[in-house]
Simulated assay, not measured.
Amino acid sequence: MSARWYFDFLSPFSYLHWQKVKTLPGAVTPVPIVFGAVLAACGQKGPAEIPGKREFTYRHVLWQARQEGVTLRFPPAHPFNPLAALRLCVAAGSTHQAVDALFDWIWKQGHAGDSLEALAPVAAALGTEAAAAQAESVKAQLRANTEAAVAAGVYGVPTLAFDGGPLDGMLFWGNDAHAFALAALDNPALLADPEMQRVSALPVGVQRR
């Protein structure tokens, strides 16, 4: 199995999903992307931008973390600007070690992740100069990651995308879709049954204007 995993450090659901994704067999490539740019491309607001939904989302992710036995502590403010964390990740090679370190700093320990100054201890632990995150090549790579995600049909984070085989190009969105992804990986015919096929082509009955 090989797969790409699209994520943003802004998302606590990405942090929860990472705990599962990093243990998958085969090659999983973490792909940091700018969630805000994906939302803009899709004409959507993020859950933290909608009053009521914001509070519910925070409580829901805390509940999920406790159910899964994962330590989760919110950073000082949310939403926050994740560009510094995303660029530092790219500068560090987007390795599993870099993804782990940044998620742990922001979502396990509850530190700010909105500036290179705030992330200086993580950069030092990774052996990456914080200034490297400001390189034009790093910024260009993050833009390219995000554009590729949008082109692949990604509309939210986290998203797991399989490469090759019967699930090639299939997208599984969300921490709570992980079991669905594993079931489809184990039995691709799951997605080929008549009702699965019917809903994939279901006509739109009405559209909001």
Rank of each mutant, 00 (worst) to 15 (best):
A135G: 08
E129Y: 04
A201F: 12
V150C: 10
A3V: 11
G26D: 09
W107I: 02
P75H: 09
A84R: 01
H78A: 03
P166I: 14
E147K: 11
L182K: 11
V199M: 10
P47H: 07
F9H: 15
A177R: 06
S14D: 13
A130I: 00
Q67V: 14
D176N: 15
G113W: 02
G174F: 03
Q44M: 13
Y155G: 04
A181C: 11
L62D: 06
L72V: 15
S2R: 15
A120Y: 12
V199C: 08
P75S: 14
A184I: 04
P30T: 10
H178N: 07
L185C: 10
W18F: 04
P121K: 03
S94I: 10
P51Y: 15
P76R: 08
A118V: 06
V204W: 06
F74K: 12
G69N: 08
A133E: 00
G164R: 03
H78S: 13
L142G: 02
L190T: 14
A133N: 03
D168S: 05
L72W: 10
G43D: 08
R4A: 05
L86K: 05
A152I: 10
A140G: 09
G93A: 14
A125S: 13
S2P: 15
A125I: 05
F7K: 09
D8K: 10
N175Q: 04
A84K: 02
T95N: 02
G156C: 04
I33A: 04
A192W: 11
S11A: 08
T23V: 13
Q97G: 05
P166S: 09
L62N: 08
H60P: 15
A148T: 06
F80K: 07
D114F: 05
D114T: 14
